[in-house]
Design a protein around this nucleic acid. Structure first.
Lengths: 240, 240
DNA sequence: CAGTATCCGATGCGATACTG
DNA sequence: CAGTATCGCATCGGATACTG
């Protein structure tokens, strides 16, 4: 694919040589979102091959943007942003803001993926408006093939591995709230293009169970960090 | 190169599908720097093939980031950023700022290119500190092969095509200031890694001609827009 | 000047399987 | 869980030549 590099001394060109590599930006986004372990990173970018992920991690480490360290307790490797890596946050955020403002929403809603959505929701869910006790929320996407249509979020503020756990098998606990909807609706809500109330009114979303949890869903359901940005979308959107 | 696209609805991923394409970021930088014509754009990215430049321009137009219009006077096409394209400026700037702060300076100084440097300098030169009359400045890079070692900047505030013209052939005018140096020194000054004074003191830079222009060189010589950023550089720099 | 057309080569990357 | 090893091909894009 050509002589790798643009032959330019301009800092934009040099940064672009790094950030232009496939998956690198997505990987940084995952790291910024807080994932530190190899397989957690994979969950956030399911289409990457382990070989390539390993390679990209190596490049970023070589570059000084991340460090690889071994967790003393578990013995498992952890990848963390260095100061240099942390300073890429404005770049990634600016990209996301622009993408959200200007890229056709339709396009987002073509790349639907229930696992990815649930993984994102797990990360941003806000336990505060929920009951103090441990609660289980079941999501059912009735337009998704059987195998990936049901998910359970278990919220427990006192859990060791973060307050929210995502299951793809029935955890066998009593469910406090059932959420039944289609993938597109839930994704649109997550991206701030739709709201819980509107979806309920339209009948695109059904809630069953704890009334209080139903009422406060819009507040505990964390949204995409870009959901607040005003959408513009002037052009014809991406061709792909 | 694989299924084009990351299969993600995240705005970062979608923006990255556009900005990750080779040369796209460089092209945007050129447009943001003010180039509007096909061959001016090429001068700012000499290693791109005309076919690919044409393709990228088409993609950005399709996307709604630029418009192509035909100049009524000259009949030549002009490419300009739309509002959506203009809003990519923070992204490009953030990339440049990061690149300047964290990427090994050595690396920049490996991608030396006299034509590119002169083309950048032409753009950012500040005519104000210079004499009111038309002045000619000759640059001689004594470490560069004969054919690309001499350049002339002609500064004329009243010229039709911008105040500064760059020539690669002797324009046959009396030269007001001779600048003799090596390519690395001049690039380092341009990037804010070195100063006119220091280079003069070290003997890496020689000036002959108009004393006043010599004295004020650091002020009329416009620097890279990133020259003000503090360099950090923690890691081992890029592998390339 | 402002592109198009064509060809072909390198290689990035996806897929899959395997290991400590 | 956290990767490595291997293979093969699609495709991106570089080179060159040509045109209105």
């Amino acid at each position: 694919m050509a002589a790798r590099g643009y032959g330019q001394f301009c800092p934009v060109a040099m940064a672009s040589e790094v950030l232009g590599r496939r998956w690198t930006v997505i990987l940084l986004r995952e790291l910024m979102a807080g994932s530190e372990r190899f397989n957690d990173l994979r969950r956030g970018m399911p289409l990457i091959s382990p070989a390539l992920l390993s390679k990209r991690l190596g490049e970023l480490e070589e570059l000084g943007a991340i460090t690889r360290s071994v967790d003393a307790a578990t013995g498992s490797p952890r990848y963390r942003l260095t100061e240099a890596g942390e300073e890429l946050r404005p770049v990634i955020m600016a990209m996301g803001t622009w993408g959200h403002r200007w890229l056709e929403a339709q396009l987002s809603l073509k790349n639907l993926d229930p696992s990815l959505l649930m993984w994102d929701m797990r990360r941003n869910l806000n336990p505060d408006p929920l009951p103090q006790r441990r609660v289980t929320i079941q999501f059912l996407y009735h337009d998704v093939t059987e195998r990936r249509s049901r998910f359970w979020l278990i919220v427990d503020r006192d859990a060791e591995d973060g307050p929210v756990d995502l299951c793809i098998r029935d955890p066998g606990q009593e469910v406090d709230l059932y959420v039944s909807t289609d993938l597109r609706t839930m994704t649109a809500i997550w991206m701030g293009l739709d709201s819980v109330r509107d979806a309920l009114d339209r009948g695109s979303l059904q809630l069953t169970g704890d009334r209080e949890m139903q009422r406060t869903m819009q507040t505990w359901l964390g949204l995409s960090v870009f959901a607040g940005e005003t959408k513009r979308v002037g052009g014809r959107g991406m061709s792909a």
